[in-house]
């Protein structure tokens, strides 16, 4: 069973929820935790994995053998991203525009294009406990394309035998979130009861629905803002699975690297109930 913790708005508590859920799930079976927020992976701060394995990842970009190239321009015509271009008797490749689709190599009539790995980041993995295998992707600074890293992270087989997979998603509702959600059995959407929280929640709800993934909402910092998130959830039939109040002790706990389970014993029960709901909903 694969659960994604997503949010739309950033800073609503995805990692807070995902890490506590992982610890409770680990009491019932083996867990694979994936930190898919490859631009700022920070779940490791709470789960303390021993990172023992690494793997360079990236995309395949074209390399042109100019001895074979006839400058016919077929590669440039095929490229939707203007990452390869022929001008006169020259062919230019712009790796930063390339999406690694391989079309140029496919259409080249002279077989002058080979593909080479352009490293965009790294996968890291190791055990956080006997029951929790932890992996994360780390996008290199300055590289804006997170999707190839997330895709490779999902395919990395380090802990693929675990019975439950928990993916901590990046914020937003764009391609990296779509890639994180793809193939999931359930989407836990963490929001806060504010206009920003609602606005971005709606976007990620649309994404999950488009992908056909059942979803439920967790309201974090409950008590601030207004009731619009609740009204919206009621209106579209989205279950509210958990509420976490706005409390100073939670903020202090998170800031010192504690999970919610460490902050208060009560959360152990809440997360156990949440886990049971997820088992039920996700297996439908």
């Amino acid at each position: 069973m694969r659960i994604v913790v997503a949010s739309g708005k950033g800073g609503t508590g995805k990692t807070t929820i995902a890490t506590s859920l992982a610890l409770v799930a680990a009491e019932h079976g083996s867990v694979h935790f994936l930190d898919c927020d490859v631009e700022a992976p920070n779940a490791g701060l709470f789960l303390h994995p021993q990172l023992t394995d690494t793997k360079d990842v990236g995309i395949l970009i074209p390399q042109v053998n100019e001895n074979r190239c006839t400058y016919c321009g077929e590669c440039a015509k095929a490229c939707q991203f203007h990452a390869i271009v022929t001008v006169g008797k020259k062919v230019l490749v712009f790796p930063e525009l390339c999406h690694g689709c391989g079309s140029c190599a496919l259409v080249c009539p002279e077989k002058a294009i080979t593909e080479q790995l352009d490293v965009l980041g790294v996968l890291q993995g190791g055990r956080a406990s006997s029951q929790i295998g932890f992996t994360q992707g780390v996008l290199n600074v300055g590289e804006p394309m997170a999707v190839p890293i997330i895709r490779e992270l999902k395919q990395w087989e380090l802990f693929s035998s675990a019975s439950i997979e928990i993916r901590d998603a990046p914020p937003g509702a764009s391609c990296p979130v779509v890639e994180t959600l793809r193939g999931a059995d359930y989407a836990l959407l963490v929001t806060e009861p504010t206009p920003f929280g609602l606005h971005d929640l709606k976007q990620v709800v649309e994404v999950a629905r488009e992908l056909g993934i059942p979803s439920g909402v967790i309201i974090n910092r409950d008590g601030i803002g207004n009731t619009d998130v609740e009204l919206y959830c009621k209106e579209i039939g989205l279950p509210i699975l958990m509420r976490i109040p706005m409390q100073r002790e939670i903020a202090e706990g998170i800031a010192s690297g504690k999970t919610l389970l460490d902050v208060s014993l009560d959360y152990h029960l809440s997360f156990k109930q949440l886990y049971e709901i997820l088992l039920r909903e996700g297996n439908l």
Partner: peptide, 9 residues
Amino acid sequence: FGGGRRRGS
């Protein structure tokens, strides 16, 4: 080959 480092999303 290649130019700057900005990659399109």
